[in-house]
């Protein structure tokens, strides 16, 4: 997974959603605000990831994240928008189970409640 231009190796102890959340914060901060998909999209993705990370997410939101990634990809003014998509999209693609785990906890909580 590529972060901000560096290769970062993480072991299995790292919560991948938390890492994606951290990186999406970085992109939200770095977005210059000029073009709409990047300015709005980076913030929205951060908001959703934040929900998921805090156990308030749903599987629908993960699908929505994927669609936001699609709506941003190659539609921004510069490559920062595309780069912002990378950690989110690839984390979902390769570590979907990490997301599901955070969501499942919530959904099973809801069932038991």
């Amino acid at each position: 997974m590529l972060g901000s231009g560096a290769l970062i190796v993480m072991d299995h102890t790292v919560n991948i959603v938390e890492a994606a959340l951290r990186m999406s914060y970085f992109y939200m901060h770095e977005s210059c605000g000029k073009c709409t998909p990047c300015r709005e999209g980076t913030r929205w993705m951060y908001q959703i990831l934040n929900d998921i990370q805090n156990g308030k997410g749903s599987s629908k939101q993960v699908e929505k994240l994927e669609d936001i990634c699609d709506n941003m990809s190659f539609k921004c003014f510069c490559a920062l928008g595309d780069a912002a998509v990378a950690p989110v999209a690839s984390s979902i693609m390769h570590f979907r189970s990490d997301y599901d785990e955070l969501i499942k906890n919530l959904e099973s909580d809801e069932v038991s409640a």
Partner: peptide, 14 residues
């Protein structure tokens, strides 16, 4: 059409 809807969704988001 998908892109237009996507961009408008972002524009209207806030």
């Amino acid at each position: 059409i998908k892109a237009q809807q996507g961009v408008l969704e972002f524009t209207l988001l806030n």
